[in-house]
Nucleic acid binder design. Structure first.
Lengths: 107, 107
DNA sequence: TTCGATTATTCCTTGACAGGAATATTCCTT
DNA sequence: AAGGAATATTCCTGTCAAGGAATAATCGAA
């Protein structure tokens, strides 16, 4: 996982675009319509998404269909894997120890 | 999943902080040392992470231990779940159709 | 080849945010 | 109470990215 990908997703309009694209490829115009965003901004946002390979283009005549690419999401998934132990194991020795300290102090 | 959480993670120093905190709670000073970042910046970044609840504080005397909270990562995981079908099923009718169109045109 | 539709690009302005420096705050120790 | 260590906050500055407006580029159809 890398900050650049996260940064691309962090912008609200782009995030929404990804949500829309989940259901299938869309053209620039369709995205602009659904998002209530002007076409040039949509093109710019798509460019950003494309640079981090979240999206790919499929030209079809006049139109350009944008489609999600699975890789970045797989990467996020792999990254999250490295955190799974955090919420699956309730051991967390030091954390418990510190919490205990805190509770004692709050008495 | 929400853009605010992604935005917090998208900043490179904060991303690195999260990586370091994966192994357990750390104080502000320890983070500053390991990241080669000045203490005030570390405090500021931690504030951002705290606001989106990626991190919680555990005061211990003079020091403040910062610790990852599992919820945001669980949320990311849930969000990714909604994409899993995308890379698990290779059907994707429309996508295939468009790719086919493209290939034909490139002849 | 000209027109219309679709999409991309450029230029400009504005706002948000990260870093630096200085200072304030908190809490322990003596 | 005073001093020192750890951390937070404030103020300032520069940079970057998003939005608006205008325009360019691309492509099919007549």
């Amino acid at each position: 996982m890398n900050p650049a990908t996260l940064s691309a997703l962090a912008e609200p309009n782009r995030f929404q675009m990804v949500e829309l694209l989940r259901e299938g490829p869309l053209t620039v115009g369709e995205l602009a319509d659904r998002l209530q965003v002007r076409q040039p901004q949509v093109s710019k946002h798509l460019k950003v998404l494309q640079e981090v390979e979240i999206v790919e283009v499929i030209p079809s005549a006049n139109r350009r269909y944008y489609k999600l690419r699975p890789e970045p999401f797989r990467q996020m998934d792999d990254w999250l894997d490295t955190f799974r132990s955090m919420w699956e194991e309730q051991l967390d020795r030091l954390g418990d120890y510190l919490k205990q300290l805190q509770e004692e102090q709050n008495k």
